[in-house]
Design a protein around this nucleic acid. Structure first.
Length: 571
RNA sequence: CGGGAAGUGGCGUAGCUGGCUAGCGUACCUGCUUUGGGAGCAGGGGGUCGCGGGUUCAAAUCCCGCCUUCCCGACCA
């Protein structure tokens, strides 16, 4: 492509409504334009780069027998009613009506559609396993679109779904997908980490996230040198790490604590530490209030709680409900003498507290010297808190957990029969018996990969694309395109590289060399050939790797440059 | 949804407190000079100052409403 004919509107300054580095660079380099909050137009350069990401993914999917399909974006409500997600998915689901007033979902994901497809054609165990995937637009009415294309309301996802006869077969295939995803990460040049994750609204009980490491990432990863890694919202806390104090167990005593509701206030008031506290929080799970206990210096992990409760909707109880359940204002709840009988869920951290402090379920009153077993009991004691710095790795139980930030670019799930059950997707086994298909699903944020790559690979001049993803692998910069000799040599190199099937951008614009260098750097073209008068007099051109400092260039003979570039690209 | 900020040529912005020719940088067009890391000079085109209403002789500026965007907290590839 000749630059003068290319639609690559680069900008010197980024528009002020962009927040992070990758969004700014994507807009400045003319890859995308922002149309509205969470809405981006892909321009030729962006689409061409995205195409390279798609090619990489497609090859890896083909390698594990994935077959590509294309499903509608407009999905009938009925399918979503079948799985119950029409109601569960919430406000994030775009819902629209047609002229007949029939309702549709703008697809945020495609489990319903694919399961419907599978059940209509797959009848026999002989047809299994099968994996179908697509590159499809997804719509999600995000609470807060952010970070350019990383959290957009409309984005491109590669979503894959596999169908199996049983768990064992799924397990084997899951491992293959895992490996394919690792290949994709490697080919995109990512520094990444695979972590255990919570599965959220998609469902299932087992999943892995592929995290691209970047300080600007939205996710926090907890990991250990022993190999353990988990999304911090999923990372487990051990049961037996809480020492039991040897102080003498005392009897409960009510104390007046007027207007001191928060843990901080009460510990000051009692001259005690937050570790003595049993924080009691009232939640409403699918309409039913529950009490949740955690040690005062920890926080409840709502994702763990939701999974323990097995509920669809979980929210903090309103002050009215707290009043109704405890008989006191917010801030004075405790597990002893709850006014209304509700289930109590306790985190491991509270059990060993000796002579603890709790709310008395009476406004402006606390109780001290509370002991588990003697004074109260929970219905369930389990892991309910967030991990914190200093926690021990739950796997090796030796080292402290490390924390990093990451961008989630892929997520793979073992769905089991969650969807095949609700949608009655069955097959006949060798004995003629009907069974539910066992499913897995596997997503990659394709547009997000572009942003994630940039977050990991840029400098003060712009993007540095890995060769595999770069829209143009080589930029040819004639210092003066009016100069016949320079022009001839540039065009000659251009032609020869094109013959080698290499994408090249020849900057034939009537601009000063400085502008051409700046644009090539901004766009992030991995290799640059500069054709200038001085070097040409000696039969040379200049070669530069974008990754290197600008002073670091190589002088190459004109007749060797094409082969040299080809050898560099293959490296 | 709650809390904060902002909307002025393509992009970045000044002007708004204290109403009265809408300015600067950059980008764009023309010409001359320049020519290896975002050149200089001269000339030029482009803005219903987010939208609607109000106050006023007069509104980018003051008042009311709406819309949009961004930032901080509950979703997820």
């Amino acid at each position: 492509m000749y630059f003068s004919k290319a639609f690559i509107p680069t900008l010197k300054e980024a528009p002020s409504d962009l927040d992070n580095i990758s969004a700014k660079l994507m807009v400045r380099s003319g890859m995308v334009r922002k149309l509205g909050s969470g809405l981006f137009e892909l321009l030729p350069l962006g689409l061409k780069t995205l195409g390279n990401v798609i090619s990489v993914i497609r090859e890896e999917m083909a390698a594990i027998d994935g077959q590509e399909v294309k499903l509608p974006l407009l999905l009938p409500k009925e399918l979503w009613i079948e799985t119950g997600r029409w109601n569960v998915y919430g406000k994030e689901l775009f819902r629209i009506k047609d002229r007949k007033n029939a309702e549709f979902a703008l697809a945020p994901t495609h489990e319903e559609a694919i399961t419907d497809l599978a059940r209509s054609f797959i009848k026999s165990y002989k047809q299994l396993p099968v994996m179908l995937y697509q590159f499809g637009i997804k719509f999600r009415d995000e609470i807060r679109p952010r970070f350019g294309v990383m959290r957009a309301r409309e984005f491109l996802m590669k979503d894959a779904y596999s169908f199996h006869t049983d768990d064992k077969d799924l397990e084997q295939y899951y491992k293959k997908v895992y490996a394919a995803y690792e290949n994709i990460c490697k080919r995109c040049g990512f520094k990444y980490r695979v972590v255990e994750a919570a599965s959220g609204a998609i469902g299932g009980n087992f999943s892995h996230e592929f995290m691209v490491l970047a300080d600007t990432g939205e996710e926090e990863i907890a990991w250990c040198h022993c190999g353990y890694g988990a999304n911090s919202e999923k990372a487990e806390c051990l049961e037996d790490i809480y020492e039991k104090s040897t102080e003498q167990v005392l009897d409960m005593e009510e104390i007046s604590t007027p207007n001191v509701g928060t843990i901080e206030d009460v510990s000051k008031f009692l001259n005690s530490s937050a570790q003595k506290f049993i924080k009691t929080i009232i939640y409403v799970a699918d309409g039913t209030p529950v009490a949740v206990l955690v040690r005062g210096d920890y926080d409840i992990n709502e994702i763990k709680l939701q999974s323990v409760l097995g509920c669809n909707e979980l929210e903090l109880a309103s002050p009215e409900i707290v009043q109704e359940v405890t008989g006191a204002k917010v801030g004075f709840a405790g597990p002893v003498n709850l006014k209304k009988k509700i289930k109590i869920y306790a985190d491991y951290s509270v059990v060993n507290i000796v002579n603890g402090v709790i709310g008395a379920n009476k406004t402006d009153t606390h109780i001290k010297n509370v002991n588990y077993g003697k004074d109260y009991k929970a219905d369930t004691v389990t892991d309910l808190r967030k991990v914190v710095h200093g926690d021990i790795c739950p796997r090796c139980k030796k080292e402290k957990l490390q924390f990093s930030r990451g961008i989630e670019i892929g997520h793979i799930f073992k769905l089991g029969t969650k969807y095949s059950k609700s949608m009655k997707a069955t097959y006949l086994d060798a004995n003629g018996k009907e069974n539910l298909m066992v499913m897995g699903c596997y997503g990659i944020g394709v547009t997000r990969i572009l942003a994630a790559t940039i977050e990991q690979s840029y400098d003060e001049n712009g993007i540095i694309w890995p060769v595999a993803l770069a829209a143009y692998k080589v930029a040819i910069i004639p210092v003066d395109f009016e100069n016949e000799n320079i022009k001839k040599v540039s065009e000659d190199i251009y032609k020869k590289l094109r013959e080698k099937k290499i994408d090249v951008l020849l900057d034939d614009r009537d601009e000063r060399a400085g502008i051409k260098f700046k644009d090539a750097d901004l766009i992030g073209i991995p290799y640059r050939i500069t054709v200038g008068e001085k070097n040409l007099q000696n039969g040379n051109v200049e070669f530069k790797d974008r990754k290197n400092d600008k002073s670091k260039t190589e002088i190459i003979k004109v007749e060797n440059i094409v082969d040299y570039v080809v050898s560099q690209i293959k490296l």
